[in-house]
Design a protein around this nucleic acid. Structure first.
Lengths: 235, 235
DNA sequence: GACATACTCATCGTATACGATTTCGTACAT
DNA sequence: ATGTACGAAATCGTATACGATGAGTATGTC
């Protein structure tokens, strides 16, 4: 755990990792990568001095990094107590998914007019691969491809703010890797179907409202499925 | 400019100001307040040492505060260059307004079922005051009341993430106080009308979609009006 | 007179040091 | 045995110090 450069997952890369940068930047990127990829799981105690030592830095840049991660919601930083990777309670999951469904819906609708046929083809290829993953039961790759699929659709998103919110949501979700939250039985196959529907809507230049609704539904269906199996959570 | 406690505007207060807190917290709150209220306008150079001296702190907590503000998009922090209050170019305005219309729309729709008749009454009172402000030409108070109006509608918003995004958008917008962006002729009166329409929709338990659409339209109409007078901007 | 180079100053970036606070373990009293 | 009080260790929060970088200015050459 001494090397500073972590080959981040697609999510982290997209989320604005800065290449070279100051130690503060490096610490930020590095810690974020570890949270998103699961090395630091929720509840993990981020002891400043320890992280600083691991990275070979002093505590000051690490503190700055933690502050930024706090502002993104990935860590919780309490005075005189310390920083911990943000938790995963069901309510939090609900909020995150709900927000994501809204933001992704908007991103899809905004991006749709700029998705050309080449992008559609790429997305379809990815979706086909996802279907194969289901047969071979490769949930890890499935998840990764799922993000690639949406990344293709969003790659020309005209509003960077919204794109940023999407990435933050993805990171937040990726950091919540308790199996409870990641496996919603039966959704995966339906998800692939919905992807195809989405592509057809985009191809046929459906109006923005229709696309937004479909995209939002795509995400919130997972949430609904989750809520159905955990009815105790109140909205 | 030496007192550390700034009586923040409604926006800042809502945005999560922490009462006592560490110096780092105080610096964060204080700088944020100054940006939102306009003491530090866009482009203003935030020299760490100078701010630290003004606040009576050292630079370390100030740096942390700046990092957090950076993550919220209120300041830009460049390595070895320094921090400046984020800019106001037209494109940025467009992105912010567009994002806000989406997020506010969702917040309104989510909150609507929880808005009781008392809240409706309060909102209506505020809206009446806004109408009066138009007659006396008091744009400052008008703006403040406008935020109060929406705050009433959102006060029971079930999803804190979305509420947070709304507040961030408001703060961002408040920090962009160039007159170019704040005055869109003829919108104010229409805005008051739309508020009333919105209240009626909520009162009559209109479905979520309808409310969301109306709320989103309410914000994006301002954007459209702005775009109409500055057609050079491309989406 | 214009351009390139060197120098100076303002400012940032980080390390180190130390005081402040919390937590946890241990001893003691009940 | 349980609960409380005290003390030590761990950790955080901030100040200070100093090296590093970039911007602006002066100087020299063509």
């Amino acid at each position: 755990m001494t090397e500073t450069a972590v080959a981040g997952s697609a999510v982290v890369r997209e989320a604005g990792a800065t290449k070279t940068g100051s130690k503060s930047e490096q610490a930020y990127t590095s810690i974020k990568a570890r949270i998103v990829e699961g090395t630091f799981s929720p509840g993990y105690r981020l002891v400043l001095a320890k992280i600083a030592e691991d990275l070979g830095f002093s505590v000051v840049p690490v503190r700055e990094a933690i502050r930024r991660l706090e502002a993104e919601g990935l860590v919780k930083f309490e005075r005189n107590i310390g920083a911990t990777v943000s938790g995963i309670d069901p309510t939090e999951y609900l909020y995150t998914m709900q927000t994501l469904s809204i933001v992704e819906g908007a991103a899809t609708a905004l991006s749709a007019p700029l998705v050309d046929s080449a992008a559609i083809a790429r997305a379809r290829t990815i979706n086909d691969e996802m279907r194969e993953c289901l047969d071979h039961f490769d949930p890890v790759r499935f998840t990764s491809l799922n993000q690639d699929f949406h990344s293709v659709l969003f790659e020309n998103c005209p509003n960077p703010h919204i794109l940023d919110l999407v990435h933050r949501g993805w990171n937040r979700l990726a950091s919540l890797r308790s199996s409870t939250f990641r496996f919603v039985p039966g959704r995966a196959r339906e998800s692939v179907r919905e992807h195809e529907t989405l592509l057809q809507l985009i191809e046929s230049n459906a109006d923005a409202d229709t696309i937004e609704r479909a995209a939002r539904q795509h995400r919130s269906a997972t949430l609904d499925a989750y809520l159905a199996q955990a009815p105790a959570i109140t909205t």
